[in-house]
Amino acid sequence: MGFFQNLKNGVSKTRQNLGDKVMGVFTLGRRIDEELFEELEEGLIQADVGVKTSLELVEKLRSLAKEKKVKEAAELKELLKQEIIAILSAGEENGFMPQKGILQVYMVTGVNGAGKTTTIGKMADRFQKEGLKVMLAAADTFRAAAIDQLAVWAERAKVPIIRHQEGADPGAVVFDACKAAQARGIDLLLIDTAGRLQNKTNLMNELGKIGRIVGRELPEAKKDFLLVLDAGTGQNAISQAQLFKEVVPLNGLILTKLDGTAKGGVIIGIKNELQIPVKWIGVGEASEDLQPFSSADFVQALFN
């Protein structure tokens, strides 16, 4: 399958890294001892899974090994896989893809440089090609030339863009976009917001306000509040997810830049601690490289 192959290629680097470290531990015929568990813990930490989640996973594996009287390291591999899939797929919902005839809003948020605008550009291109009526809202009125950047994408994808001037109130942009999306029978409204660090209270409050405008103006629409996360991010991603969740009803992550050597293991920690699932992953430069996330495929590709 093309999709699966793509995903596998995309996460192959992730796999290599997580794989090298974690899988190296499961050498054939190796006996299970304390050293093995310690190495495993280290491997997970090195994949950015985080100390807490790594310790939990290893602890669970330890008791499972005892309970099931596992003797060989290879058997542990299956158990670990199942554990990670269990974490990632808990409460996984199907059918979150936008559809024709139903207004769906993606409000895209994140820290500076995570890849919000690029992700939106790719989504616009992808869904326009699939026949949906897409509209962009340039609510990053802060960063220099952010509006222009999004406008270039709108032109490429041949979709309309709602924009104000630089420095304008992002709430006003979003309000206009909501009105326009309704009036023009849009299927997918993609809202680009300014990058903000999660500890900047004023900026986070502003984001909360934008979110409320969307909720108020489009009560009927399906709304996804998505956090874009750079796969290279370390444990700070957990703080990001937590604090963004406090101001908007965050219900999904977009993991970008998985085509490098970054492992993105922090998504396991985020899901484990905050129950926020990954919905999309970016595995390359092209629009097709933005793909829906599936935990089963992800872990499968990660371990094989």
Partner: peptide
């Protein structure tokens, strides 16, 4: 270098 970078920062 992004101060929020994780374990991959060394590879980069």
């Amino acid at each position: 270098v992004d101060a929020m970078a994780g374990q991959d920062a060394v590879n980069v």
